[in-house]
């Protein structure tokens, strides 16, 4: 049991950092380009240690994100739970991919979750409909290889 809990502080810390980066004020023009930090982190941990991080983590993170962004309670929670579920579905396949292929997959996964977010948002009320929602998915995919390499080093040292 102790072995399974090892390095939990690192995982929590990265999630807090992700929430922090997601809440950071940015100029309006750059707002569209902000990578989905929380989604990226959740995706990483779901792919690497799927038996420890999963849908429940996505749900809790999503709730916190809802509170920070002031969106409908459960809105981000739905999106992140969905993303975690998708990640758990594909994790064994994704491990075999090269970094470039993984990046493409990340684009698809985060793009899909963004789409779900948009659907629920338009179901909830007035919204501007735009294709710009693929921008965060793009920047996230570009960031993925760098994040993957850094986090792998950290994970091997502290988590497993």
């Amino acid at each position: 049991m102790a072995e399974r809990q090892r390095g939990y502080w690192l995982i929590s810390l990265t999630f807090i950092l992700g929430l922090y980066l997601q809440a950071m004020p940015m100029p309006d023009g750059l707002l569209w380009w902000r990578p989905e930090w929380v989604s990226l982190l959740l995706l990483y941990w779901c792919l690497e240690i799927p038996y420890r991080v999963g849908v429940f983590h996505g749900f809790v993170l999503g709730l916190l994100l809802d509170l920070i962004e002031g969106s409908f309670l459960g809105h981000n929670a739905l999106m992140l739970s969905f993303l975690a579920y998708l990640a758990l579905l594909v994790h064994s396949r994704m491990r075999m991919y090269t970094l470039l292929k993984q990046s493409l997959m990340v684009f698809v996964l985060i793009g899909t979750s963004q789409l779900v977010f948009q659907w629920t948002q338009s179901a909830l009320g007035a919204t501007a409909s735009t294709i710009l929602l693929v921008l965060p998915a793009t920047t996230s995919a570009i960031l993925w290889p760098f994040m993957h390499l850094t986090f792998d080093a950290m994970r091997r040292r502290y988590v497993q």
Partner: peptide, 19 residues
């Protein structure tokens, strides 16, 4: 419920504005 829970993320919001 929401306003109570928001207290949890208040430090985060505050610190995100710190820079």
């Amino acid at each position: 419920v929401r306003s109570t829970l928001t207290i949890v993320v208040t430090p985060l919001q505050w610190s995100a504005d710190l820079p």
